[in-house]
């Protein structure tokens, strides 16, 4: 697949934002580690919504006919892309209410609790849908697995968590300790998730040139594709990174995305560094998971390539 920058920004940024929102809300509602101060909760929420918004806006950039973008909400019944949009849009009012009221301390606790829970749920549902947009496609075996939504959620939470931790290193609020511990856990979880995923896509399965042409006995080779230059299909699906590049980038994903943040957060727990370390962890995680996302698209092999010379996907 051709990795479009707009889609990479979309998934990474909104993932992080939504992860942050989930955590901020849950910390508030369940007073985890003493809960967030009104200010902390407000800034975390605002940051979360900001990242989410950037992501959603980015996603519209790869539309060839944006004037019809509003219609994307209409097929909630069947389309995960549609669902993603609907959840995201629903999220805003609840999230705004929750974080503003929490900031102003202007609402009864039961109401805040309800709003908070709803916010967290909607945010989760949105990230899940994002994952399902890809996981539901049988045309790309590298995507067609429940590992994909799992990864999307874990990595969204991981990014959200490092950001939350960073905020707390500034405010030095009560929840910092809980946050760092949690961050450490999700980072490890997300990292493991990715390891499993890379293993899983390693073994070949799915359609081959033989099942595509129906000639299951003997070698089948493409002679001519009936076109002298590339067409839409080749532009969209033709891209394939070299194995060596993939290898290098995967290391970068592990290193930047997980190892470095994990080390830094561990140091935080040991009361080393503070904001500086936390902030570096954020940058590193974003870089790593950005690369992870690029690979996520680049490594996906659409079956249509079978009709352009590939033997299997």
């Amino acid at each position: 697949m051709h990795p479009a920058l707009s889609v990479i920004i979309f998934t990474v940024s909104s993932g992080a934002g939504l992860g942050l929102i989930v955590l901020a809300a849950l910390f508030g509602v369940f007073q985890i580690g003493g809960g967030l101060t009104p200010n902390e909760s407000f800034w975390a929420g605002l940051l979360g919504l900001l990242l989410t918004t950037v992501g959603l806006l980015a996603s519209t950039f790869h539309l060839a006919n944006p004037k019809n973008a509003w219609r994307a909400f209409s097929r909630f019944r069947s389309s995960w892309l549609s669902r993603e949009g609907v959840f995201a849009v629903l999220l805003y009012p609840f999230a705004l209410f929750y974080f503003v009221l929490a900031w102003q301390e202007a609402a009864p606790n039961w109401l805040l609790a309800c709003l908070g829970l709803l916010t967290a749920l909607l945010a989760l549902a949105t990230v899940f849908s994002t994952g399902m947009i890809y996981a539901c496609l049988r045309t790309m075996r590298q995507w067609n697995t429940s590992l994909v939504p799992t990864n999307y959620i874990l990595m969204g939470l991981a990014l959200g968590a490092v950001i939350l931790t960073t905020v707390l290193t500034i405010t030095r609020g009560p929840a910092l300790e809980a946050a760092t511990t949690l961050t450490l856990m999700v980072l490890i979880g997300a990292g493991l998730g990715k390891v499993i995923y890379y293993f899983w896509i390693g073994e070949p399965r799915g359609p081959t040139i033989n099942t595509a042409t129906g000639f299951t006995r003997g070698a089948v080779r493409l002679f001519e594709s009936g076109q002298s230059s590339g067409n839409f299909l080749n532009k969209e699906f033709g891209f394939q990174p070299s194995a060596s590049l993939v290898g290098k980038l995967r290391l970068a994903v592990y290193g930047l995305g997980f190892v470095i943040p994990i080390v830094l957060v561990a140091l935080l727990i040991a009361n080393e560094g503070g904001f500086a370390f936390a902030f570096i962890a954020v940058l590193s995680a974003f870089a790593g998971i950005g690369i992870e996302r690029w690979l996520f698209f680049a490594e996906a092999r659409h079956v249509v390539n079978l009709f352009y010379g590939q033997q299997h996907t």
Binding site: H62, A64, N65, N68, A72, L137, L233, E236, H302
Partner: peptide, 10 residues
């Protein structure tokens, strides 16, 4: 159609 290519992916 909004030209998102999603159907082509599918």
């Amino acid at each position: 159609c909004m030209g998102c290519n999603y159907c082509a992916w599918a």
